[in-house]
Amino acid sequence: MLLLWAASSFRLHAQLPALQLKGQVIYTAGIEGKPEAYLWIRIAGDTLGQERLTAMKGRYQLIQAASVIHEVAVEDFKLNELFAGYRDDGLVVKWQLPVFETPATLFVAIKDEKTGLQTAVTVPVQYGRLRFRDLAFVADAKGLPLMREFVRVGEPFQIKGTNDILWVRYFKHHFTQAAPPMDLKGEKASPTLQADSTFQIRGDVSLSWQQEGLYLIQKDTTDIYGGIGLRVEAQPFPQVARRKEEAIAPLVYISTSKEMESLQASEELKPALDRYWLKLFNGDTKKAAQVIRLYYRQLKEVNMMFTTYKEGWKTDRGMIYLIFGPPQQISAGQDIEQWVYTNKNSFSKITFTFKRQVNAFTDRHYTLVRYLEYEPIWYTAIEQWRYGYVLKELQ
């Protein structure tokens, strides 16, 4: 495992704003060209200008198994010279990577000297045999990589890197949420997905889709792991819509089964949610409002950061981030991430390990390595939400 930067102070529930990264590697010049690494940098709740990059330090490493293939020292990673544009309240930088013959993992760590915030991200790099999803990418209307695996209904986008006729399969399937970290059964296997419809598009033209759901874009339908998965979500995603299903379902992690049944059976959304939160906090409207604000704010962040073929809050990383907050320490190896949380009162560490699981829709889906020993940790964290103790951690 490689470790870049450990924070100097820790909280069980790390306070937002948090420094956030998303990465993508694209062979924009084709098979013979060097891959380009794109990094989306955002501080949740803050607006970044290009000049802010001068206060940010970075380091990247290309790792293959346990060996370091290439490393750029932190002082040589000049983010302000790599600016590529703006996306989703964040900045995008790009640089070229060296070429190698076999797959690797790009590990990037960033520290903002102005705020002290820091984090890291891992990005798979498909050296060797390139697939459609390595050569083509989803871009915004200006041609900049979208850096997320969803678009909103009616949002214009393009498939850059090809002008060929492409196949698109559409799925209405609703995926289940993540299982608790002590549930050894882990992620429930979805039934074999059957496309609800199929149609064709051309690459490098403006697109805009109106039907919510999951889409798989392929050049060759026999290339099982070469397609590009893209979700289409209703506004205001990644915020939660004011529709019953979207507003209630993410409460499953901190609710009892009876509470969920009552919420789902309710005819009117707002009164049901008001009763739910006020009952948790014995009528304390101020505390209820603060916890609601924090929970749904973190829900927005996990949807932005971790949505792949299913919504971010339903993924393993999204579940852990939602309940425990941003990790204070991230380490990575080939196809693996470890998140570390430290309780500032007891100095005990909680480590969650995620393994990358490539599927037909994405290279960026990670599943949690589950242990029975997580049970007391999980229920303690849930109690902190249900009793409002999480607010004390943020003071």
Rank of each mutant, 00 (worst) to 15 (best):
L62Q: 04
E259K: 13
V138A: 08
G23V: 07
G45D: 03
F281E: 06
T28S: 05
I377E: 07
L368T: 09
Q298N: 14
K111A: 13
P35C: 03
R293Y: 13
G213T: 15
Y321S: 11
K392G: 03
I69Q: 11
E259C: 10
K355C: 00
I159S: 04
I228A: 05
T362G: 04
A178E: 09
R317D: 08
P376F: 03
A44V: 02
I323N: 05
D220R: 12
A381L: 10
L19V: 12
E311P: 05
K172Y: 05
N80R: 05
Y389E: 08
Y127T: 02
V93C: 05
G33T: 14
Y215V: 08
P145M: 09
L2S: 10
K142D: 15
I159V: 05
M260Y: 14
V153K: 04
L91I: 12
P17Y: 01
V121I: 13
A178M: 03
V72C: 01
G318N: 03
L184T: 15
Y295P: 07
V99W: 07
H70S: 09
V291K: 08
L39A: 00
N345Q: 06
R52K: 14
D88P: 06
R317Q: 15
H174G: 15
Q384T: 13
V302H: 11
E149M: 15
P103A: 14
